[in-house]
Write a protein that binds this DNA or RNA. Sequence first.
DNA 1: CTCTTACGCTACGAGCCGTAGCGTAACTGG
DNA 2: CCAGTTACGCTACGGCTCGTAGCGTAAGAG
Lengths: 216, 216
Amino acid sequence: MSSAPPPAHPRPGGGRTGRPRDPAADRAILHATRTALVELGWGKLTMSDVAARAGVAKTTLYRRWAGKSELVVDAVAALFDEHLELPDRGSLQADIEGVVLRFAALLERPEAKTALMAVVAESTRDDALRDRIRSAIVDRQKSLVLLGRERAQARGELPREDDPEVAARTADLIFDVIAGAVVHRTLVSAESVDTEWARGFAGMLVGGLASVRSFP
Amino acid sequence: MSSAPPPAHPRPGGGRTGRPRDPAADRAILHATRTALVELGWGKLTMSDVAARAGVAKTTLYRRWAGKSELVVDAVAALFDEHLELPDRGSLQADIEGVVLRFAALLERPEAKTALMAVVAESTRDDALRDRIRSAIVDRQKSLVLLGRERAQARGELPREDDPEVAARTADLIFDVIAGAVVHRTLVSAESVDTEWARGFAGMLVGGLASVRSFP
DNA sequence: CTCTTACGCTACGAGCCGTAGCGTAACTGG
DNA sequence: CCAGTTACGCTACGGCTCGTAGCGTAAGAG
């Protein structure tokens, strides 16, 4: 929950003795990581380079993060913390359009573009990394879906669900559809998500939700 | 179009003189690449290792492919050629369910799982690689969407489009929604695409298409 | 038989990885 | 003020991969 990046190797003893870690170093390292991602991309980013950019010894990097993947996850997670929210635009359709455009704007950033898919790819063989991505990035996105549904229910645009399990499954489905479509459009099809696309997508999704409601 | 992997450095002169390349080596290399992907994953796969597995000198690898990314794209593209098709199940909804399940089965394979996202990530900074992915993988998937629409139009489930530009935009949208949702569900949410999910997704998509049709 | 290209092999400089060892700095509790 | 504990910077290291060069040989075309 704290937006401060959690150290990979948390403080051993519960006691808080000894020299404390320099918080400025964390900030410098994460900033240097994003800069390096922009300039070099995931593939050519190296721990040595990040350390040099941050004005920090390489050993300090390894004391806080287990490796490149963990470091990059924390670096891009900070972007999501800053730029991802759900503005209330008055209708479900407009809310979806809004969040789609914001998410797309995030993915257009070269840091996020090159890093997100790479760490996800890495996470297919690393459960700890998958958990880190989930808690640092994915869960925060998913909460926007839940918030959007709640607003739509308050407006009467969507029915209140009775079965919590069905509700959860539906929310997961919507989340995968929204996030998946935006990511695929941006990174695989490599075309921009403009207002026109967002409107068409949101219209289709709202229509689909309405039809599912009428055919249970 | 030819399912044979195109060499990265095509034959220089139009003339076909000199010793011809060994086609068996291509097959051995691509097979070794898939095996290495299964055992090591993208991150730990090395050109040296692939060469050793294929019983081929490392230099031969570099004579045919510019690097790891290009090699892996060709290796997984072969999987798509073999296992991706659109069975005619009699209705638009059933067709979508079918292609979703097939695509998901492909993504469950460890070779594809670890490789696809990685090469897409790499392609964000490499236009040539992006084109290679597009022609070897993405365009073939997209053609299934066009085929599915044609069948649905023949059945009368979807209207024939007048404006070809609108038709193309809609097809692109559908493609990003389908492929994106399946990829996101499988790789990011890391949950399996079973028949139940496929039914729910296809139902929502068909409903959305219907609603778009009625509100132009 | 010559020309051309592919192949295997060896060797190489370069770069990064991740860790160990050391001396020093900062903060805590007695 | 002083020991105990932890963080930091620095240096150095073995191990690995990269991508290329150079050589001798193999397999086709004319």
